[in-house]
Design a binder for these strands. Structure first.
Lengths: 142, 142
DNA sequence: GTTAAACCAAGTAAAATAGTCGGAATTGGA
DNA sequence: TCCAATTCCGACTATTTTACTTGGTTTAAC
C-alpha cells in the first residue's frame, strides 16, 4: 500500500510551488533541486498535473510553472489521484468501473469501500495552504 | 494505492474461515474454490498467516485450517498488514524505520502519517465477526 | 500403505516502477 | 538576430514487484 514516487514527488513539487510562489513562474530545475527529484522524471509528472489543470506553465526562457489555483483551493487528494489514479484498494470500488457480479452481497467489497473513503477523506481535507501553514508554524519556533 | 492480491485474497480467505468454521479444520482446497483463488498461491499466503499466529493448521488427511482466535478478536488490519507489510504511503512513516534526516520539519511526512493512521484505524476497527454479521444481515433479507 | 492434506523452496512470465535520453518548440534578453 | 533557458513530447530501458506455478517432502487418518 505504498504510494509510488509519482504521488509522493507530485505532492512535494506542488508544495514547493505553493511555498515559493510569487508572481514569477518557477523553473522545474529549481523545484527538482530543492526537492531532490530527478528533473527529467519530474517533468513527466508535472505534465500530468498541467493536463489536469492544477498547474500552469510558461514556456521559453524565464519560464516555469505556477499553481493554477490558489493553494487553499488545491487538495492533496487532487494531486495524488491525478498522478496515481483512483485510491481504490480493489478494482471493484473504482468509481465508474463495472463492479463484479457479486458486488450486491460482497462483504469484502464493503471493507475496500470503507478504506477508500477514509483515505480520500483525509487527502481531500488537506490543502496546499494547510501544508504551507504547518510549515510556517514549525519553522517560526526556531 | 491498490492493495495487492495478497491482502485481498488473505481477507477473503480469513472471512471464508470465519464464515465456515465449526470444529473441523477446513482444507485449503475448499477455501480456494469457494473464493475462486488459485490453491497453490493461497497456500503461500496462508503460510504467512499461520506464522503470524492468525490461523492454525492440522496436517495430514482430514486436515486443514482453523482461525487461531475467535473471529471477533481478528481484525482486517492484522490480516492485511501481515500479508502486505505496514500500510505506510512512504518509507519515512513505517514504524521502527529510520525516518529521514529532515523528518523533524518535513510537512509531507505529516501528510503520509495522517493517511497511514486513517487507513489503519479503519482496518483495525473491522473484525472478521463484523464481516460475518454484515454478511448475515445482507442475506437474511432474501 | 494409500490417500488427503499441509508444508517448503525455487522458478518464472508479465506488469509496473522509476527513471533516462534525444530532440523539437517557444520565448526573453544580449 | 541569435543564443540560452526553458517547456514539451515520445520512446526506450533496467530493475523490481506481482502473481503465480512446479515439484517435491512430510504428516496423519482410514
Amino acid at each position: 500500500m505504498k504510494l509510488s514516487t509519482k504521488g509522493r514527488y507530485g505532492v512535494k513539487a506542488m508544495f514547493d510551488l505553493a511555498l515559493n510562489s510569487d508572481e514569477d513562474p518557477i523553473p522545474l530545475k529549481d523545484i527538482a533541486s530543492r526537492q531532490e527529484i530527478s528533473e527529467s522524471y519530474l517533468e513527466q509528472l508535472i505534465s500530468g498535473l498541467r493536463k489536469a489543470g492544477l498547474v500552469k506553465s510558461v514556456r521559453g526562457a524565464q519560464g516555469g510553472y505556477l499553481l493554477a489555483k490558489s493553494p487553499d483551493k488545491i487538495t492533496v487528494g487532487e494531486v495524488i489521484r491525478t498522478l496515481e489514479g483512483p485510491m481504490a484498494p480493489s478494482e471493484c470500488v473504482v468509481e465508474d468501473t463495472q463492479a463484479c457480479e457479486k458486488s450486491d452481497y460482497c462483504v469484502t467489497r464493503l471493507v475496500w469501500k470503507k478504506m477508500k473513503d477514509s483515505v480520500n477523506e483525509v487527502m481531500d481535507s488537506i490543502t496546499l495552504q494547510d501544508m504551507v501553514d504547518e510549515y510556517s508554524s514549525i519553522n517560526k519556533e526556531k
